[in-house]
Amino acid sequence: MSSAPNHGTVNVPEPDLSGRPGSPLSIAGHVQQVFSHVKIENLVAGLSGGVVSTLVLHPLDLVKIRFAVSDGLDFRPKYNGILHCMKSVWLQEGLKGLYQGVTPNVWGAGSSWGLYFLFYNAIKGYTKEGRQTELSATEHLVSAAQAGILTLTITNPIWVTKTRLVLQYNADPTGKQYKGMIDALVKIYRHEGVAGLYRGYVPGLFGTSHGALQFMAYEELKRDYNKYKKVASDAKLNPLEYITMAALSKIFAVATTYPYQVVRARLQDQHNRYNGVIDVISRTWRNEGPVGFYKGIIPNLIRVTPACCITFVVYENVSRFLLRQNE
């Protein structure tokens, strides 16, 4: 006699613990593998380098941004060069004027460098896992680009506040809108919403190519130089060698990608309204020609090259010290 079908129970599939691709166990394993390469030492070392270089060189960053947005508005001060700009700000606003926007810049640079080195080394370690061969230039480029996108997504609101604070002028008819970093963050969010905090994000994404090109060049230069010296590819260099590698890689990246920084600064400028990236590009090209996309590049090179050198020297030494302590 056949048994009646059981309508009172539901067949629940057993969880797939086989480790096959796509199974929960497989996904968890991949996540665990990625996080096994996350080292807080890289975060601390990158943050240290970013903070030190920012505190030393912030006035040049202020000059670069003011040149980048100089589009002829009447209330903007007119500068004849880097020294004239710095002298004018000093005479009108003193040391405080030269360090306008330093708080979000320190937060932004420190967190950006820290997160960038954290993500970059984790992605690089995961990519290299189980291999005997070195990563290729393309793999360094891709790892750095992924790290850049993650970092930008977290830090973009800080960069918007920095730009807004740097672009507060004494002669501005609207007066100074922001009292500091927190006040700027709150007011931007209140009046412009999340979109306001993510102004410049799209050109910022293009800007991740800057970091990717810089890190690729830095890694390749280090590796080729160590091969030339016939030592291990990850052998420690002296400070002068690190400075040289960092400077060459930074100059290469800046020369290749600078126009996006002008576009980004103009999108974040509270004194102008653009309808997106294409509008900025077309108006800048129409009104100022190709040179408009390279405004501020000289103060930028003067600032970012030593900033990069300081950051990388501090990072390499602090990370090696911390990792050695843990071992």
Rank of each mutant, 00 (worst) to 15 (best):
S2M: 11
S3V: 14
N6A: 14
H7N: 15
G8N: 12
T9W: 08
V10T: 15
N11P: 02
P13K: 05
E14H: 09
P15V: 13
S18P: 00
S18G: 06
S26L: 13
I27F: 04
H30N: 08
Q32G: 15
Q32H: 07
F35D: 12
V38S: 04
E41I: 07
E41M: 10
V44L: 15
V44K: 03
G46T: 04
L47M: 10
V51Y: 00
S53D: 03
L57F: 08
L60W: 02
D61R: 01
V63W: 06
K64T: 15
K64D: 04
K64P: 01
A68V: 06
L73I: 09
P77E: 05
Y79S: 09
I82P: 09
L83F: 05
H84I: 12
K87Y: 12
K87G: 08
V89S: 02
L98I: 09
G101E: 06
P104H: 10
N105F: 03
V106K: 04
W107F: 14
A109N: 10
A109E: 06
L115D: 00
L115S: 08
Y116T: 08
Y120Q: 01
I123G: 00
E129N: 15
G130K: 05
R131A: 13
Q132V: 13
S136M: 06
A137F: 08
T138V: 14
E139T: 13
E139H: 02
E139N: 12
L141H: 07
A144M: 03
A145G: 04
Q146K: 13
A147W: 01
I149R: 03
I149K: 02
I149N: 01
L150H: 01
T151F: 00
L152M: 03
L152C: 07
T153I: 09
N156E: 15
I158F: 04
T161G: 02
T163L: 10
V166E: 01
N170E: 13
N170W: 06
N170C: 07
T174D: 15
T174I: 01
Y178F: 14
K179F: 09
K179Y: 13
K179I: 09
G180T: 10
I182A: 10
D183S: 13
D183T: 06
K187L: 10
I188R: 02
I188F: 05
R190F: 11
G193W: 10
G196L: 08
G200V: 09
G200H: 04
V202E: 07
G207Y: 03
T208R: 02
S209Q: 11
H210K: 10
H210S: 15
G211T: 12
L213Q: 03
A217P: 11
Y218C: 10
K227L: 15
K230C: 09
V231F: 04
P239A: 08
E241K: 07
E241N: 11
Y242C: 00
T244P: 00
K250Q: 13
K250H: 05
I251S: 09
A253M: 11
A253E: 03
T256Q: 04
T257R: 03
Y258P: 00
V263Y: 07
L267Q: 03
D269Y: 04
N272Y: 02
Y274E: 06
Y274A: 12
N275W: 05
G276K: 11
G276W: 03
V277K: 02
T284I: 14
N287I: 10
G289D: 07
V291L: 08
Y294E: 12
I302E: 00
R303G: 03
V304D: 02
T305Y: 01
V314C: 02
N317Y: 09
L323V: 10
Q325R: 14
N326Q: 13
E327Q: 12
